[in-house]
């Protein structure tokens, strides 16, 4: 089976985010594989181990993403492609998807796995848009998948409910928490990853012009959420407490 994983390098979820003149400060920050993409990589490795074939990681980003790609290879993926997008102006989800589409047009993927969302931008758009563009089926937010005879049996998370789907390959799925428990890259895996093929492509290689993939959105402003204030504990008779709570929700928090 030709298994592909689309993955993204993101900010470590444990990092404290700092903003300086409208830009997120990246100095000294740790970067990781987007945690949802990690589920995708783990599932891809398990599918390969069960059905044979090869797992190829595909990432759009700058050369720094090589570190996260190597981590994916250390987990057990077979090879990887990094598509550099440094020339793209104002890149957004559209840009990433357009670049990926150009790449996948020449591949014969049986299944493409990705994360449900990326924890940085949080749009969840790249996967479904890519499937649409390639004209293949897609299922988002999956928590289980079994493949047999060119068909996939999938369980997906629907805001806490489950939906069971049977669908034919080729297929794109995005991974939700609960799909699996991603393995740690083992030390032998890390040493092997060094020797696995990692191909770097740029827009020219995909016959793309930078104008074609320029972002379609415009970021107006970036700011941190307001600092969390200390909580309030209401006292007195239950009735008084309820009345006070209702009044606070109406007048102070203005949520009802």
């Amino acid at each position: 089976m030709n298994i592909y994983v689309i993955m993204k390098r993101t900010f470590d979820t444990e990092e404290k985010i700092q903003i300086d003149s409208g830009e997120i400060v990246e100095d000294g920050a740790e970067f990781i594989i987007n945690p949802y993409d990690e589920y995708a990589i783990e599932e891809a490795i398990q599918l390969r181990d069960e059905h044979g074939g090869e797992v190829t990681l595909v990432s759009v980003g700058d050369e720094e993403a090589e570190k996260q790609i190597r981590t994916g290879l250390a987990m057990g993926a077979d090879k990887a492609v990094l598509i550099e997008d440094e020339d793209v102006e104002n890149g957004d989800q559209f840009s990433t998807e357009a670049i990926l589409a150009a790449y996948f047009k020449d591949q014969e993927a049986d299944i493409i796995l990705g994360g449900n969302i990326a924890v940085d931008g949080g749009s969840g758009q790249v996967g479904p848009r890519l499937a649409e563009n390639l004209g293949i089926n897609h299922v988002t937010s999956i928590v289980n998948i079994e493949i047999e005879d060119g068909k996939a049996k999938i369980e997906r998370d629907v805001e806490g409910d489950q939906e069971f789907i049977e669908i034919s390959l080729p297929l794109l799925v995005t991974a939700q928490q609960g799909l699996n428990e991603p393995r740690y890259p083992s030390l032998p895996g890390i040493m092997k990853a060094k020797k696995k093929p990692l191909e770097t492509l740029d827009l020219d290689d995909l016959d793309l012009d930078e104008d074609e993939v320029e972002g379609k959105t415009n970021t107006v402003e970036r700011y941190l959420p307001p600092e969390k204030e200390a909580g309030k504990i209401l006292e007195g008779e239950i009735d008084d407490q309820v009345n006070e709570l209702v009044s606070l929700l109406k007048n102070e928090a203005k949520v009802i």
Binding site: E66, K67, R70, T71, Y184, P185, L187
Partner: peptide, 14 residues
């Protein structure tokens, strides 16, 4: 090296 960093990360995560 990158491998060193990955080894440290695997250990820390574990």
């Amino acid at each position: 090296s990158d491998e060193h960093v990955m080894i440290a990360k695997t250990t820390e995560d574990f």
